[in-house]
């Protein structure tokens, strides 16, 4: 099958469009998370998403609206993680561990109560971007616009908080509000990303493109731009390769991300030797 034929399918076009938007959102938010050493938040939120999807399926909400229905639960959980990470008595990584364990535990129990792992829950674990529906595409577009606007309007505050939270506080920046904003947006991104890579690989979309961009960084702004470029390239390559080789799209997208990281990392290691 030629590339033109692959791209002529409406569901492939929808997948590439939604994947591009979601990957861009994750790669932007990922830069702030990775630099603040909060990369694991993606993993935590993904596990919560698993629990939330199980709750939604258990209640019997139509699979068409699962993404929308799971959002409030994941957003509340993200705030719980934020609250716990700020607690003086619980370490940040332990806080993420607590909330993600609850998510997985609830998911397993509810899956068992509803007669074992049904097909829907399984599909969310490993994702299938080729099944993105119109609602999810619209939601992805909305979130993309919201994230771009937030980063544009709060760029100074996000940059300051990422650089040094105490310094940002001394400049009168409401760091708590900025953290809430970042966590809420990450929660929404994690829910949407489960469709792209599946719950198991959500954190890859938040971590790998920023890491690749950091290898090439010449400024903070450029890091964000380069991160988005690699994220989008990975989605497009991943979808096309998965279609051609009949592979799962989610896993292929993540492998593309890893390959880009390894290539850039390798070039960076070799370049000084060759000079």
């Amino acid at each position: 099958m030629s590339l033109g034929e692959i791209l002529s399918f409406a569901f492939v076009q929808r997948a590439i469009l939604a994947g591009t938007l979601i990957a861009a959102v994750c790669s932007i938010l990922g830069v702030f998370l990775v630099l603040r050493r909060m990369s694991l938040i993606g993993d935590g939120l993904a596990h919560i998403t698993f629990g939330s999807v199980a709750v939604v399926l258990f209640i019997g909400i139509s699979p068409l609206y699962i993404t929308l229905a799971a959002l409030p639960l994941v957003m509340i959980s993200s705030l719980a993680i934020l609250k716990l990470t700020r607690s003086k008595k619980i370490q940040g990584d332990a806080a993420i561990g607590i909330v993600s364990s609850i998510g997985i535990a609830v998911g397993i129990v509810l899956a068992s109560l509803s007669g074992g792992y049904n097909v829907d829950l399984f599909s969310y674990l490993f994702g299938n971007i080729l099944t993105v529906n119109q609602t999810e595409l619209l939601l992805s577009l909305m979130i993309f616009i919201i994230v771009i606007c937030c980063v544009f309007f709060f760029y100074h505050d996000l940059f300051a908080v990422t650089f040094d939270e105490e310094l940002a506080q001394s400049m009168g920046i409401k760091t708590k509000r900025i953290n809430v904003l970042l966590f809420i947006l990450t929660a929404v991104a994690a829910v949407l990303a489960m469709k792209v890579t599946g719950i198991m690989l959500v954190s890859a979309l938040l971590i790998l493109p920023p890491l690749t961009a950091l290898q090439l960084s010449t400024s903070f702004r450029m890091t964000i731009i380069v991160s988005v470029i690699f994220a989008i390239l990975s989605v497009i390559c991943g979808i096309i390769v998965s279609f051609l080789l009949n592979l799962p799209a989610g896993g292929t997208i993540v492998i593309c991300n890893v390959i880009f990281l390894l290539i850039i990392f390798g070039i960076k290691q070799i370049a000084p030797v060759l000079r």
Binding site: L35, D164, E166, L167, L214, S217, S219, F220, M222, T223
Partner: peptide
């Protein structure tokens, strides 16, 4: 305000002098 030392300056932080 010039802090004693940045709480946890990440040596991989990609901000330039101009941006800071």
């Amino acid at each position: 305000y010039l802090p004693q030392r940045l709480a946890a300056l990440n040596n991989h932080f990609p901000g330039t002098v101009r941006e800071i």
